[in-house]
Each structure stands twice: as C-alpha cells, then as structure tokens.
C-alpha cells in the first residue's frame, strides 16, 4: 500500500493523465512498416519454373510448383503456390528467384547479387538401379523434403531439377551404394583419381604375385596399404580433401578387384586358352610358348576356367577402409582365391 506513494509521482504526469482518461487502441496497430515481410506475392506470368524457390525454402510444405493443364491454344503455365499454413515468411524464395522482374515478392527484396545466389546442391544423387531393391524408403524420405524421387516404370528415379541434395535418400537407403552422391564438379579429376587409385592398388598387389600363387584354396592373404600415399598423389590432381576422401571411400567400398596370376611353369602349351581368350591377350608362339599380355587382359577369368593345369590363378581382392584401418592410416587389402568352378 505504501508503494502507492511511489506511483503518485508517475500519476502526476501529464502524459499519464492523458492515457488514463483517453486510453484506447489506435489505428496505428494495423499499420505495417514498409520493410515488413508478408507472405510472398506470386506473379505467375514471370515464372520460368526453375524450382529455385522450392529448393531454397526452409519450411517443408510452404511452396509448391504447380502446372495448369494445357489448353487448345497454349501450354499450361507453371508457377509457385504459397501455402500460408507452412510459410514462415523468411523471404528466402524471393531472394533466390532468378527471374527479372521477380516472380516472387516478399517485403523489401534484399541485396540479391549474382555472387549470393544459391546453388543448394553440389552433389548429384543418383539411384543405382542395379542395386536398388525398391523398398521405397528413399521415396518416403524424399517426399517429405523435396519430392524429387518418383517411381517410373517400377524404377526409382531422382528428378535432378527437384533434388536439393539433402542426402536423406542415402541415409534411408538400406542397401549400401544403391543411392550415390556424386560430386557434380571436377568430374575429370575424379576420374583421374579413381584410375590412379585402382592402378596403384593393383600394382601393389601384383608386386606380391609370388606369395599369392602359393595360397591354399581357402587361405586369405592380407596386405595393408598406407592411405597417405594415395591421398598425396590425389592431392596433386585436385586439392580437395573432402572429395578425395569421398572418392577413395567409394572406390574401396565397392571395388572387387580380380587378380590374375600366371604360372608359366605349369603350362603345357596345350593352347586351350588361346582360342577362348576374348581379347586376344593370350597368344602362342612357337618359341616362347603360350604368352599372356597383362595389358590386354580383361581379367574375365575364362582362361582360369579353361586351363586344366591351373596355370591361371584367379584371386579376388577386396578393400576395407574402416574406422580402425583409418586410424592406422591404411587400406586393408584382403586377397582370396576365387571360388569359381573350373570347367573340365
């Protein structure tokens, strides 16, 4: 009650007395400042259906591209539709809209310069139809995000114009490697890296040929290859560690390298293989006997299956780049004799 006194000073002021007698809600509450960002305004006629707005929108169900049906005279137009129940009024769609004049207007359009425009993806996602088991988990994951994956002719297909590169499909895919994220840029360099890695690994294994030949049918031969070596070489091709790691990981993941050994001592020059070899890598010479040219060899294993004397040996090398192996900085190579039956 005594705090009343502290208020008397306040109450004695003119502005307070005015408020006391004439308190009311002003019409100014309805005014919005000029920079206020309301829901985006869509001007259909300018839309080029690039999908930048849908790709950029951070809210999942705020923007949708729709297409009106074609009439007799002209094609239907495509334009974005804003769903007010999802739109968070950030104005990002207006910012990324590339048309001039803008299709989407939202408050004061911010500084939009060429260098700030967005490429939301730097990875392209593709579905490997061969590995795909059509579980549709990616479809489900994608339809909530971008709706880029659809089913065409019973195959899962990613629509690249809609893909925003979130990688949800990869996360949800139960099959390793069925969905691939491919770096769009530096394709040539990537190829080089792949070739380089495969070549080096192959060379490394073939250097141990003598030991491999002695392997018993169920025996496993292991080699550790230091990864730094590969990375160092790859860095000369392109200095992007992220990309290099990604490439090496992908290579070692799926690569099943066939190693073909050739034991000249066992050869009886029966020449069964020469006619079978599809690439002509095995030749017969009267002086030198049966010769194999490793450069031409496709490692198709036909010679291995044909030879009754076991001259050709086929081994399968697998590569492992696990966390433990990474700690040691090595790629683990595992070599096993092939289990392919030998034709008799």
């Amino acid at each position: 009650m005594s705090s009343v006194i502290w208020y008397l000073y306040e109450f004695a002021r003119k502005s307070w007395a005015e408020k006391f007698t004439a308190a009311k809600t002003d019409s100014e509450i309805m005014e919005v400042p000029s920079r206020f960002r309301d829901f985006p305004e869509v001007r259909k006629e300018y839309c080029i259906a690039c999908g930048a707005c849908t790709a950029a929108c951070p809210a999942p169900m705020a923007i949708k591209l729709v297409r009106t049906s074609d009439s007799a005279h002209e094609d239907g137009i495509t334009y974005p539709v804003i769903n007010n129940r999802g739109c968070i009024r950030c104005g990002f769609c207006a910012e990324v809209c590339p048309t001039d004049p803008k299709t989407l207007l939202c408050g004061e359009n911010h500084l939009i310069r060429e260098e700030f425009t967005i490429l939301p993806v730097d990875k392209m996602f593709v579905i490997d139809d061969y590995l795909c088991i059509r579980c549709k988990k990616c479809l489900k994951a994608c339809s909530e995000v971008a709706g880029a994956i659809s089913e065409v002719d019973k195959k899962m297909v990613i629509d690249q114009s809609k893909c925003i590169g979130c990688g949800e499909c990869i996360k949800n895919c139960p099959v390793k490697g069925a969905v691939k994220g491919i770096y769009i840029n530096n394709v040539e360099e990537q190829k080089e890296i792949i070739n380089m890695v495969v070549d080096t690994l192959e060379a490394r294994i073939e250097a141990d040929q003598d030991k491999i030949k002695k392997l018993a049918p169920e025996e496993v031969y292991k080699i550790d290859y230091p990864i730094d070596d590969l990375v160092k070489k790859a860095r000369e091709i392109i200095p992007n560690d992220e990309l290099i790691r990604d490439s090496i990981e992908k290579i070692t993941d799926r690569l099943k390298m066939r190693i073909l050994t050739w034991d000249d001592e066992k050869c009886t020059n029966c020449r069964l293989c020469t006619s079978e070899c599809p690439s002509g890598a095995i030749t017969y010479d009267k002086e030198k006997g049966v010769q194999r040219n490793p450069d031409k060899c496709l490692k198709c294993s036909i010679c291995y299956q044909t030879c009754p004397f076991g001259v050709a040996g086929l081994y399968v090398a697998r590569f492992l780049l696990s966390d433990t192996s990474l700690k040691d900085g090595v790629i683990q190579i595992t070599l096993k004799p092939s289990q392919l039956p030998i034709r008799s």
Binding site: A56, C57, P58, I88, C90, F92, I118, P120, I164, G165, C166, G167, E168, K171
Partner: peptide
C-alpha cells in the same frame, strides 16, 4: 543436419 547453411540459418 544435411541442410545447406542457407536453410539452416532460418531453422
């Protein structure tokens, strides 16, 4: 996670 930073800042 898995969004670009341009979206992330709004989130």
């Amino acid at each position: 996670k898995g969004k670009t930073w341009q979206k992330g800042i709004y989130l």
